[in-house]
Design a protein around this nucleic acid. Structure first.
Lengths: 188, 188
DNA sequence: CGGCGTGATGTCAGTTGCTGACATCACCCT
DNA sequence: AGGGTGATGTCAGCAACTGACATCACGCCG
């Protein structure tokens, strides 16, 4: 018999999500999370760098999909075309995830500390995208600018998807957000 | 005679800047900052919400200039034209400030915690810009998208200005960054 | 089969960021 | 002259995080 229940990392993440939802982020203590997961506070900090990080386990996957899509776009695709390709791929990633995304987003938006963490994750993502675009031959500052813009389009579309009541697909909203951007920047 | 030396807020900000520069952000303690400024730790927290905030006193002014410029742009200016106007105004704000901006930026970039704070300041700024654009009649999601893009252009230009060795004006780099954006989004 | 390294966890003590409650006292206004 | 006020000091305390060391099931190797 195992000395401890397995999967303590996931149990901690689940417990944290529940408690942040029930009592709010600031009013839940790491000790409470650990207790609900059946481990020690120290164990929490062995799995997650800090109290915020426990909500951002999926960031790596998002970045992977984004990077791979950029790298895999047709060789002759323009920067904006490769962004469009990437946004399609990312849209797929969230299919059927709206309830979870909504709960998580509500928690994040309720706490400035968590918003900060979310922002740095997106900024890191933008940095990775810029590198992927440079690998395709795009130069600075165009690469960074394109990457930033891609993230902006993603963010605006994503927030709409999470907030709105209708059941439009994320992919649709991302396409629409991108189209809107082109209209705006094309105007004199 | 005054009971205490005046201007403790500024003294604290100055002491913090020095110490963050000398020993690094993580390795300086609020007690040290307070000691150098000749006050108590408690007084530090009366002036600044936390250890990071002491570096961001200027954020309010930046936001003011941005908002006023958007609001003051010609009535018939397109969204991108009002962004251009705002970037001009903001460029002026930093004239002769490069040494300070450089030192501060080096400190911020050296610490993830400080980068997070910087990002949320820019995000707040973007929110304010979106509101200013809506006040001019622009609708969502165009307003948010335009605001985000304006911040991206600012950020990319600003970082170039801080990093590069030549002595180009911030205004020039912002104009160039904006032009680059238009090229990118205009391509198919 | 038995010892032995290993990895995940527990235990404990300590530092630091940050907060609430209350005291002090120069200054200003009346 | 007296009372109010604002900026500061003092103190106690919680919670986030860290380093050092102990424990012990498991699996490998001889």
């Amino acid at each position: 018999m195992a000395r401890w229940e397995p999967d303590s990392g996931n149990r901690l993440a689940q417990a944290a999500l529940e408690l942040y939802d029930e009592h709010g982020f600031e009013d839940t203590t790491v000790a409470e999370i650990a207790a609900r997961a059946g481990v020690t506070e120290r164990t929490f900090f062995r799995h997650f760098a800090d109290k915020r990080e426990v909500l951002f386990g999926g960031a790596g996957m998002l970045q992977d999909v984004f990077e791979r899509a950029i790298a895999g776009a047709p060789d002759d695709a323009s920067p904006m075309e490769s962004v469009a390709v990437a946004l399609e791929a990312v849209g797929e990633l969230f299919v059927d995830r709206r309830p979870y995304a909504r709960q998580r987003q509500a928690i994040i938006m309720s706490s400035p500390e968590l918003r900060e963490r979310e922002l740095i994750k997106l900024a890191t993502l933008a940095t990775a995208l810029a590198a992927a675009l440079r690998a395709r031959g795009l130069r600075e500052p165009g690469a960074s600018l394109t990457a930033e813009v891609a993230i902006s389009v993603f963010r605006v579309g994503f927030e709409q998807w999470v907030d709105e009541d209708e059941d439009r697909e994320l992919t649709d909203l991302l396409r629409q957000s991108l189209a809107e951007l082109k209209v705006i920047t094309a105007a004199p």
